[in-house]
Simulated scan of single mutants.
Amino acid sequence: MQFVNTHPAGPHRLPERFGSAQDLHAWLLEKAMGSETAHVTEADAASARELREALITVLLAHSGDKDTTPEVLAEAERYLRHAASRYPLVTVVTASGASLAPAQTGIPGLFGTVLANVTELAQAGVWDRVRACRHQPCHFGFFDRTRNRTAVYCGTKCGSRESMRAYRKRKKALASDWGPSSK
């Protein structure tokens, strides 16, 4: 989720973490995933943003977001399949079990690690519980811990804002139905 929650939207007021090569490099250092001498390019930052946006689209689909159309979801899934071919994974077998790991190092390894984490969540049967907040423009990634698996907002702040937005929309519609222009 750390990878998905790097965008600058919503009430969390986070800065764009993949806006430039320098931003991506700083994020990698902060997460202890890179070194001071790691070479990060603007193309790497653009690829990180594209991967993140495709994942957010899938997570919004998990949340039942009405703006995530089948076409938008299909495009995100196509992108993720393409990314999986560019950033292959290998199975690491040990005496204690097996896991997936990126076949590459550096930035391609980071993207492979993200895909490995997604795969492991899916294999554990909890991928559909990883969601993106439906509150526009938040889209903050979160894990749905509710018993009935129905959470669609990252927290009460976004849920309240969305409820208030819907209330105002209903109130405005009602006022226009009963206003001076309707007869």
Rank of each mutant, 00 (worst) to 15 (best):
Q2V: 11
V4T: 03
N5Y: 02
H7P: 15
A9E: 12
A9S: 09
A9R: 06
P11D: 06
P11H: 11
H12S: 06
L14K: 06
P15E: 05
P15M: 06
E16T: 14
S20H: 09
S20R: 00
A21Q: 05
A21M: 10
A21K: 15
Q22Y: 10
D23C: 11
D23A: 13
H25Y: 05
H25E: 09
H25V: 07
A26L: 08
A26V: 15
W27K: 02
L29S: 08
A32P: 01
S35Y: 13
T37D: 07
A38K: 09
T41K: 08
A46I: 12
S47A: 06
S47D: 12
A48D: 10
R49C: 12
R49I: 04
E50S: 13
E50K: 11
I56T: 04
V58R: 01
H62T: 12
H62P: 05
G64N: 08
D67S: 08
T68H: 04
P70E: 10
E71K: 12
A74R: 06
A76D: 15
A76P: 14
R78D: 11
Y79E: 04
A83C: 05
A84W: 00
A84F: 02
A84D: 05
S85F: 14
R86W: 11
R86G: 10
Y87M: 07
P88I: 02
P88R: 02
T91S: 03
V92P: 03
S96C: 07
L100H: 01
P102G: 13
I107V: 02
P108H: 01
T113R: 10
V114W: 02
L115G: 03
A116P: 06
N117I: 02
N117R: 11
V118E: 02
L121P: 01
A122Y: 02
A124Q: 12
A124D: 07
V130E: 01
V130F: 12
R131H: 09
C133K: 00
R134Y: 04
R134M: 13
C138L: 07
G141Q: 05
F143D: 09
F143L: 08
D144I: 10
R149P: 10
A151Y: 11
C154F: 00
G155I: 00
T156M: 02
T156G: 11
T156A: 10
K157I: 00
C158H: 01
G159A: 08
R161D: 00
S163M: 10
S163I: 14
M164C: 08
M164A: 07
A166M: 09
Y167G: 15
K172Y: 07
L174G: 14
A175I: 01
A175R: 04
S176P: 06
S176N: 13
S176V: 13
D177A: 13
W178K: 09
W178I: 11
P180V: 15
